[in-house]
């Protein structure tokens, strides 16, 4: 191909020269939280089995969840659920063909990130101070 006749098409993304964009982060985070929630759901299955196994098996499981590590893990799981939920809804909207303009996609991306930060704080406040 002669360089002179090459059309000025957009080039495919290349990691080193790709301008950082928030929609890039939301895409990666969707997959990362998805894989993390895979682990969390297996944990839920184990928790249910521990409850069925009886108090002597459930006790240590429960102690772990109440420990600082367990509490941090649960907090992060809630954040991952919130993110995957918000961004999942965003993707369902994309599937309908709406919201794909770069400006709209960036706005909704920031909303998904905001929701992932706000939702676990909200739930923590509700559990601690509410009801």
């Amino acid at each position: 191909m002669a360089g002179a006749t090459r059309p000025q098409r957009p080039l495919s993304p290349h990691v080193q020269v790709w301008r950082w964009h928030v929609t890039m982060l939301t895409s990666i985070l969707h997959r990362v939280t998805g894989v993390a929630l895979y682990g969390a759901a297996l944990g839920l299955a184990l928790w249910l089995m521990a409850a069925a196994a009886g108090a002597e098996v459930f006790g240590p499981t429960h102690e772990f969840l109440l420990s600082p590590i367990g509490q941090v893990a649960l907090y992060l799981i809630v954040a991952a659920v919130a993110y995957h939920l918000a961004n999942g809804i965003r993707h369902l909207v994309f599937d309908s063909g709406a919201g794909l303009q770069p400006a709209d996609a960036s706005t909704s991306a920031w909303f998904a990130i905001f929701f992932a930060i706000a939702a676990p704080i909200g739930l923590w406040a509700l559990v601690t101070f509410g009801g």
Binding site: G88, I89, L92, L123
Partner: peptide
């Protein structure tokens, strides 16, 4: 995904409370 958009938040909030 649509079913989970209802079930997952329901479980998280309900079980936490």
């Amino acid at each position: 995904a649509i079913a989970l958009a209802v079930l997952a938040p329901w479980f998280v909030v309900n079980s936490a409370l």
